[in-house]
Each structure stands twice: as structure tokens, then as C-alpha cells.
């Protein structure tokens, strides 16, 4: 019987303080590499999560370091290498319509985070949680062949 584990999941809840960001980046990098992503891809997946955390800290909790997030990571080795990431926060006043990438031709400091998240990940989907707060779902497959990207913002979901 083949007992090899092909799917791994973990959940961590932590205060969304920048002091935690390096630890979470290392965790994301290790998880990504363990399920088969290259060093480069693993670094970029870490970057996408880092940018998502920064946006929650700055715009969601407005720099309040006591705000909490729950990070759930599911990695798949078969049938294809894939990582699914879910970040839940408890912010109340975020307008999903305001979450968008800016024009890169406009060279100015700031506003790059959403562009980086959407460029790195295959899927990035912000939605309102029924219990309150915002859920960000990110997903990326290891590239073996060209694939479509989907990016969408939805209304109320649990």
C-alpha cells in the first residue's frame, strides 16, 4: 500500500505585526520548496504572502499590531504540485473594490503590493467573510505548461 502523503495542511494564527513577517516568509518558503516549487518560485510565493500581510496590517488594521490573522496553507504534490493559501482577518471596513493593482507606468512609491500578489499567484481572490473580516485565497501551481490566470473579487462568502 502506498502510504506517501501527498497533501499537507497547517494553520497558524498570529498577530499581524511586521515583527512576525520574516518568520512567516521562512515558513512559506520552506512549505513551497517541500512540495516541489523551485527556490525562485518559493521566494516569490513568500513575497506574495508578505505583501498580503503588509496590506492587512496597513489598510485593514491601520497599523494596529494587535490585529490577528489566520493563515492556512495546503500543499499538494499529486496530481500536480500546488499550494493553496488562505488568509483570514477580522477587519471590518475594507472596501473590496479598492483592492486593485495600479498602473506600473506611473512610477511612484507605494501601491505595488496587489500587483505583486496577482503577478506571482495564479489565483488571488478577496471576499467578505460571513463571520466578519476579509478572506484572501491564493493559489499557485508549479508551471509545467502554460495556464490561465484568474483574478476576481467577490461579494459575501463564509
Amino acid at each position: 500500500m502506498n502510504t506517501e502523503r501527498t497533501t499537507t495542511q497547517f494553520t497558524i494564527e498570529f498577530p499581524i505585526s511586521p515583527a512576525w513577517f520574516q518568520t512567516i516568509r521562512r515558513l512559506m518558503s520552506t512549505s513551497s520548496k517541500q512540495c516541489g516549487f523551485s527556490d525562485r518560485d518559493a521566494g516569490q510565493i513568500s513575497m506574495a504572502v508578505d505583501e498580503a500581510m503588509a496590506n492587512i496590517h496597513k489598510h485593514g488594521y491601520q497599523l494596529d499590531k494587535s490585529g490577528r490573522v489566520t493563515l492556512q496553507v495546503t500543499t499538494h504534490i499529486t496530481p500536480a504540485t500546488r499550494i493553496d493559501i488562505q488568509l483570514d482577518d477580522e477587519t471590518e471596513h475594507v472596501d473590496l473594490e479598492s483592492i486593485r493593482s495600479r498602473e506600473l507606468e506611473d512610477i511612484r512609491p507605494g501601491g505595488l503590493g496587489v500587483h505583486l500578489i496577482q503577478t506571482i499567484m495564479d489565483e488571488s481572490n478577496w471576499s467578505k467573510r460571513e463571520s466578519g473580516g476579509v478572506r484572501l485565497v491564493l493559489s499557485k501551481k508549479r508551471k509545467n505548461h502554460p495556464h490561465m490566470k484568474s483574478v476576481k473579487c467577490e461579494g459575501t462568502h463564509g
Binding site: E51, A54, I107, P109, L112
Partner: peptide, 16 residues
């Protein structure tokens, strides 16, 4: 070894 968008924003500001 790692720079995020706030680091890039810092470089853009100094560049400008």
C-alpha cells in the same frame, strides 16, 4: 536577500 514593496518604494522615492 529579501526586499518587499515598501523597500522598493523607498528606492523609488530616493531615485526621484
Amino acid at each position: 536577500s529579501y526586499m518587499d514593496s515598501s523597500g522598493v518604494a523607498t528606492l523609488i522615492e530616493a531615485f526621484q
